[in-house]
Design a binder for these strands. Structure first.
Lengths: 298, 298
DNA sequence: CGTCATTACGGAATGCGTAATGATA
DNA sequence: TATCATTACGCATTCCGTAATGACG
């Protein structure tokens, strides 16, 4: 046997007033149906909850305990309802966001700050994965948002450019280029040992670099995919490298960053990526929020 | 707007099966009413919980969160019901029991052990008060049970004799009575300094003692109400005293206990006391349980 | 006789099941 | 055409409110 929320509301009212008349008034109903609801509740629970005669109403022991649970049921019911509404409205919930690598840390933390300020009840699940992996998981619905670099299938995904920055040249301390005290043109680097990006795992940077400097088997001394690795190799004197401006934040000692000449301004782009048909309201809120505050200065 | 338990059960079933047909089967109903219940629930919550077309059913973000709460509501409802039943059956709940003083500790702990073994889900609230206070609070319904000594109003209370014990004579170490090596008759004590019970606060023991020995202003050197105080005074050589046998457990050094002669056997009675009209099932269980195991050897 | 919980009864609303509909692959 | 959620409709049940009843001080 089972009881209803109406019965519980009736019981709580009677238990609080200890008077059917006043309880009925509070519930905006008449005594008879209230009386019946209590009877039904008692039959459903199989327990006498209220000891009553024509003069007084009081709770039985079981009634006292049940009152506590009844109140709990009511607040849980109402909070469940509100939570669902907040989630649908995009004011609460969870969005799963992926980011490429350490190089996006600056933007990512900014995003986290902006979101937690505008939507304190939205929780962001973070996943680190490369662009290709992001697009896969987006299509499978395993994540809601991606922070990735071009190229990606513009027809399948909606996107927003949220950050762009300069490409810099990372050289070891004391390198002769540091003494020029002016922007370096890629032409001047043809003889320098270059630490290069993997065309597979870091295709974006790979493309960016080969567009401005001719890479051959001779000058490319290493091929890596992570900016952090790259900086370590530069610091170790293994060569020079093209890195995004935010890399200066990483703080590897023994490396200097030099401006470049003859490149398009701020060529390094970061996009927010999502599936157009994504129905996670929290994700929509995140998109709106980031769009409002874009471009994001890392 | 409000939803019902039926709607919640329907929602949980559909959310688990992600298929209206199978969910309906599991719920022992046909699809159409199930469909309607889900619609009503969504209207009540004001939120789309299930994304469905004619080919697939899946949870929305709000639906996922609501599912968790829905399950919680169901278990809370069923546990509330069970708890109420257990309380009415006397298998769980709280009974408020009063006891007189340190002299009843032995019986009290035995009772606590017996109860917690037979009824692990019954909680006993303990209150220390003298017999008179117990009868007052029993009448006011502020406690359920009393552990007290006669006299009390036998017409107002139901009672059960649960323990009786000898009265002993407490004397300081080295007292000449200890050398007799036989039961002492109260007649032999007429010249001894006697530590006496308060006729107000410890009326039971007072009556018991004056029934066997003549107490005058001369031999009664102190008047106290607690057995513990009495033992301390005896140990300090202030006099001798009549004490219940369980006092030997208290372990005050410097005191010896001697058997008495010419008294009725085990004259010290302890009764369990309750209001006949008490309706606390836990208290009834305690009464039954104690009755079954009485008399209680402390 | 007044108070207050309960039963009696008529009308409205709700919910089920069967049958029909509609949309999709 | 097959599948599966939804709407249409008839019938039983539930529930409210008004009126009557019954118990107690």
């Amino acid at each position: 046997m089972t009881f209803t929320f109406d019965q519980i509301r009736c019981f709580v009212a009677v238990a609080e007033e200890l008077h059917f008349g006043r309880a009925a008034e509070q519930l905006q109903m008449t005594q008879p149906p209230l009386s019946r609801q209590i009877q039904k509740l008692e039959r459903a629970v199989g327990v006498q909850l209220l000891e009553r005669d024509n003069r007084k109403v009081e709770l039985t022991s079981a009634g006292q305990a049940f009152l506590v649970e009844a109140r709990r049921l009511l607040v849980l019911a109402s909070s469940s309802l509100q939570q669902a509404q907040r989630i649908q409205a995009g004011a609460a919930g969870t969005a799963r966001i992926a980011f490429t690598a350490a190089s996006t840390f600056g933007v990512l933390t900014t995003i986290l700050n902006v979101i937690s300020e505008s939507y304190p009840d939205i929780h962001l699940d973070l996943y680190e994965m490369v662009t290709r992996e992001q697009t896969d998981k987006l299509l499978k619905g395993e994540i809601d948002l991606g922070l990735a670099r071009p190229p990606f299938d513009k027809s399948a995904f909606a996107s927003r450019l949220i950050h762009r920055e300069e490409l810099l040249l990372a050289v070891p301390d004391g390198h002769w280029l540091t003494e020029l005290d002016r922007p370096i043109h890629p032409r001047e680097l043809s003889a320098e040992p270059l630490i290069m990006y993997s065309p597979i795992k870091a295709r974006y940077f790979y493309d960016l670099v080969v567009r401005v400097v001719s890479v051959t088997g001779e000058n490319a001394v290493h091929t890596v995919s992570q900016v952090l690795t790259m900086l370590c190799l530069v610091a170790g004197g293994r060569g020079i490298a093209f890195v995004p401006a935010t890399s200066t934040r990483i703080g590897i000692s023994g490396v200097q960053f030099l401006p470049l000449d003859g490149l398009p301004p701020e060529p390094v782009e970061l996009h927010l990526l999502w599936l157009r048909e994504n129905r996670n309201p929290a994700a929509r809120s995140v998109i709106d929020c980031i769009t409002r505050s874009a471009p994001i200065s890392s």
